[in-house]
Design a protein around this nucleic acid. Structure first.
Length: 295
DNA sequence: TATCCGTGGTA
DNA sequence: TTACCAAGGAT
C-alpha cells in the first residue's frame, strides 16, 4: 500500500494494527453472503456486537437468503428480532427483503444508489454493504470513524454533529487508492474506534496512531462543542412502546386491550405509545379491540 | 436540523 | 445510582 502521502499513512498504520488485533466476527468471515453482511449491518445500528451475535446466527440459519425472509409473516420477523431494540429495524429489514425479491431478483445490489433506495438503509449501511460485501471503494463513515478522524486528523476531542457530505469527503482523503486496501482501511478504522479510540476512555497507549495523532500533539484538548444530548429513556414513550411490544411478542394469540393497559399507569401516554406503534405498522388492531403483531 | 426510535452493558 | 453510549435511519 502506498503510504507516502501523510494522510494515507494513517490507513496503513491502522490496517496493520487490524491484522493483528481484529475481533473474529462471523460476518467478516470469507465467503459470507452480501445478504448476511446486510443483515449484520442493520442489526448493528445502535446495538452492540455481543447482543447482535446470537440473533444474527439464528437469522442466517433460518433465513439464509432474502427470499426466505420475504415470505415470512412480519410477526415472525419481529419475534425473531427479540430484544435487539428499535423493532422498526426488523420491519424495515423485512420490507427490504421483499424489495430485493421484487426489484433485484432476490440479490443484494452492489451500487450505493440502489442500496440507498432500500428500506432501512442509509448513508452508512449502503456503503458498508458495498465495501464489506463487494469490496468496492467508498468511504464508510460511522460514529467510530467520525470520532477517530476528529481526533487523529482534526485534533479535536470528539466529533461534532454528523455532516454526511463533509464526513464522507474527510474519510475519502484517508483511503488508499486500491479498493481492497481501502476496504481493509475502513473496517480497520471502525475496529480501532470500537476497541482503542473509544468515546469515554480511549486506550491511547495501545494505539498504532499514537505518534501521528493530532489530538495527542495538541495535548488532548477536551471536547469544545455542545455536549451531545443523551436521550432519556425511563418514563418516555419509548419505554412504554417497549413494554407494549414485549407483551405482543410473547403472546401466542391476539391480546385484549386490558392486557396492554396493564403495562403502564398513565393512560394518556399509553394510548399515545400504542397509537404510534399502530401507525408504524408494528401492531395491528383486530376486531373486538384486540391487538397482535402484524401478519 | 433536531427529535424520535429500544435495550442493556459499563464506570 | 445515574449517566453515558452502542457499526443509524427516517422524518
Amino acid at each position: 500500500m502506498d503510504s507516502s502521502v501523510p494522510e494515507r499513512r494513517l490507513a496503513a498504520l491502522v490496517s496493520d494494527w487490524y491484522a493483528e488485533h481484529a475481533r473474529e466476527l462471523p460476518w467478516r468471515a470469507p465467503g459470507v453472503s452480501a445478504w448476511a453482511v446486510l443483515v449484520s449491518e442493520i442489526m448493528l445500528q445502535q446495538t452492540p456486537v455481543h447482543r447482535v451475535l446470537p440473533v444474527w446466527r439464528e437469522w442466517l440459519a433460518r433465513w439464509p437468503t432474502p427470499q426466505d425472509l420475504a415470505v415470512e409473516p412480519a410477526a415472525e420477523v419481529i419475534r425473531a428480532w427479540g430484544r435487539l431494540g428499535y423493532p422498526r429495524r426488523a420491519l424495515r429489514l423485512h420490507e427490504c427483503a421483499k424489495a430485493l425479491v421484487d426489484r433485484h431478483a432476490g440479490e443484494v445490489p452492489r451500487e450505493v444508489d440502489a442500496l440507498l433506495a432500500l428500506p432501512g438503509i442509509g448513508s452508512y449501511t449502503a456503503r458498508a454493504v458495498a465495501v464489506f460485501a463487494y469490496g468496492d471503494r467508498h468511504p464508510v463513515v460511522d460514529t467510530n470513524v467520525r470520532r477517530f478522524v476528529a481526533r487523529a486528523v482534526t485534533a479535536l476531542g470528539d466529533a461534532g454533529p454528523p455532516r454526511t457530505v463533509a464526513d464522507l469527503a474527510a474519510v475519502e482523503e484517508l483511503l488508499p487508492a486500491d479498493a481492497a486496501d481501502a476496504a481493509r482501511a475502513s473496517i480497520a478504522f471502525m475496529e480501532l474506534g470500537a476497541l482503542i479510540c473509544t468515546a469515554r476512555a480511549p486506550r491511547c497507549a495501545d494505539c498504532p496512531v499514537y505518534a501521528e495523532c493530532g489530538w495527542q500533539r495538541a495535548g488532548r484538548p477536551a471536547a469544545t462543542g455542545p455536549a451531545r444530548k443523551v436521550q432519556k429513556f425511563a418514563g418516555t414513550d419509548r419505554q412504554v412502546r417497549g413494554l407494549l411490544m414485549a407483551v405482543l411478542r410473547e403472546a401466542t394469540a391476539p391480546v385484549p386491550r386490558a392486557a396492554l393497559d396493564a403495562v403502564w399507569q398513565d393512560g394518556t401516554q399509553r394510548d399515545r405509545a400504542l397509537a404510534g406503534l399502530l401507525d408504524d405498522g408494528l401492531v395491528h388492531r383486530l376486531a373486538g379491540d384486540r391487538y397482535a403483531l402484524p401478519t
